[in-house]
């Protein structure tokens, strides 16, 4: 796969704090990766370094095969193919949606007519066409969030750095945002998503990079990470109408009141056996749940459960 971004041995310290300690990872063309990590892990520093807002102490950032750690026209040209969508609602609140879009279009190198044309596209894309002449400060959180994303992708970037795109929005807006981003995926855009919404990352990302204490501690598909960390066994939870006595099942079955839990790799084989045993005990099954290993489990497994400040 052609790489649009490759980071090699990226390091950066702020005083005594080593924010990045030899970070390595890559993003392929059209690939969506999730850059995850606890607070203070180094995600923001990494994203800001890619965007050119932090100068690395060491290491190389190759963007579209250009070393952007070296200043110059080539680096500027490579960065112009990058779209950055910050977590903050970085918009001009007294400008209208249309005016914001045209401003950021111009700042990202679009001509006046191109900016106007792309603003039209973005207004439709975000569903804000009917509010184009309204000032942004009158928008709801979800509308601002959608416009915030649109301002970062107006110039058709080939790689999008997306920081917490759905934080603080309702489920409806969240769905709309992922629909919007899905269109960009269809158009072939690569995306690097930074988020604490692990379920979303699990759902949309092709690959997960977990960073902690300034280092990449995991990099791979969700399936491979699960296999490497918590294992691919699934939990089968059967809820009964009444509790059963201790020793009714084998040692592989854990009892908790009316619930019994089995961890197994062979759900199709093991579940009928469990249900047969339940029936034999004269109990009725009220619910069956199969819980797959999640990204959250992988994340907590790798980064621990202690609070990060």
């Amino acid at each position: 796969m052609t790489e649009v971004l490759r980071i090699t041995d990226l390091s950066r310290s702020f005083g005594e704090t080593e924010a990045l300690r030899g970070v390595n990872f890559a993003v392929g063309k059209g690939e969506w990766i999730g850059l995850l990590g606890p607070n203070g892990a180094g995600k923001t520093t990494c994203v800001r370094a890619i965007a050119g807002r932090v100068r690395p102490d060491a290491g190389v950032i190759r963007l579209f095969d250009t070393d952007v750690t070296q200043a110059g026209e080539a680096a500027a040209a490579a960065r112009s193919r990058l779209g950055v969508v910050p977590q903050d609602i970085a918009l001009y609140p007294t400008l209208t949606a249309s005016e914001n879009l045209q401003t950021f279009g111009a700042l990202n190198g679009l001509s006046t007519s191109e900016a106007r044309e792309r603003a039209e596209w973005a207004l439709e894309w975000t569903g804000l066409d009917g509010r184009r002449r309204d000032r942004v400060k009158t928008f709801s959180g979800g509308m601002k969030r959608r416009l915030n994303i649109a301002c970062g992708v107006l110039h058709r970037p080939e790689l999008i750095l997306l920081d917490e795109p759905t934080v603080g929005v309702d489920p409806q807006s969240r769905e709309r945002i992922w629909e919007m981003l899905g269109q960009l995926r269809d158009e072939g855009a690569s995306l690097m998503l930074t988020t604490h919404q692990l379920d979303e990352a699990q759902r949309v990302c092709d690959r997960i990079v977990i960073i902690d204490h300034g280092c990449v501690i995991a990099d791979g598909t969700l399936r491979s990470l699960i296999a490497e960390t918590v294992g691919s066994d699934r939990r089968v939870i059967v809820t009964l109408d009444e509790p059963v006595g201790e020793g009714a099942f084998g040692a592989t079955v854990r009892l908790n009141g009316t619930a019994l839990e089995v961890t197994t790799e062979q759900v199709a084989a093991d579940l009928p056996m469990v249900l047969e045993q339940v029936a034999g005990l004269g109990r009725r099954v009220e619910d069956v749940r199969i819980v797959e290993p999640s990204l959250q489990a992988v994340f907590l497994h790798l980064t621990g459960r202690e609070l990060r400040e």
């Binding site: 965007a51 050119g52 807002r53 500027a76 112009s80 950055v84 910050p86 977590q87 903050d88 609602i89 970085a90 918009l91 001009y92 609140p93 950021f104 700042l107 990202n108 190198g109 301002c151 970062g152």
Partner: peptide, 13 residues
């Protein structure tokens, strides 16, 4: 404060 400056500075200006 509202992050616009950061965003503007990641653009071409």
């Amino acid at each position: 404060d509202n992050g616009t400056l950061e965003r503007v500075l990641t653009s071409r200006i």
